[in-house]
Amino acid sequence: MRKVLVLSLIVLIFSLGFAGLLEEIQKRGVLRVGQDPGYMPLYGTNEKGERIGFEVDLLKKMAEILGVKIEYVIVNWDGIIPALISGKFDFILAGMTITPERALKVDFSIPYLTIGQTVLYNVRKYHSPPTSDELKKMKNLKIAVQLGTTGEFAARRLFPNAEIMTFETMDQAAYQVALGRADIMVVDSIYAMYMADKYEQLASTGELLTKEELGIAVRKGELEFLQWINTFLRWAKVSGLIDELKEKWNVQAE
């Protein structure tokens, strides 16, 4: 009897000392999410300075269920995983592709969107959409990418002879294509389609160079929190919330 008491006391002390992140967030009343400046239509800032987008709406639902407010911590994409590890925010919901390399540093949720890398090009430069085979044969091909994205990795792998220009944000890289300073941009298909709709000089080839799944990243070992996120995502899929938001933001992905 005494042994059981002591043991349960020890368990109690430990569980108090190591209150889970989920509990901490609810106590704190704030859900801190890490994102980079913009990846429309998933997230970005409107003219009034408010965060908008598919993932922002998903976050709002998450915060509503948890009964907390959202705090956006905006960092550069190339620093987003180190920032998560060092505790600057609770998780990353920023259109991050699940890769086994990243999974060595962070834990991923179940995927919520399936996308692919595609080519964004300037219609003044190419009269018909350039295929990847044509692009591979091109000499002095200049490719703009966002630093540290799967777009950068795919561009290096698929176009080894091209010059890769790495920019801090997606918009900076896309701007190079619009200006004609880069020939193409290799980027997530959702973003390429969004930009092609928005700017008449830009178009997407629509050819998927890769297939990737987007997931939420949490610090290694935050398993209870990850479990809750997975439950939330599964519910969001089944209840039709994801489909509803996809339609609202015109997200063309599976």
Binding site: I81, R102, K105, G148, E152, T166, Q176
Partner: peptide, 18 residues
């Protein structure tokens, strides 16, 4: 402006190796 100087290269290595 995406010039591949020392700091940019370090950031590239940082993102590739995490």
């Amino acid at each position: 402006i995406a010039l591949g100087e020392l700091t940019m290269m370090a950031r590239q290595v940082g993102t590739r190796t995490l």
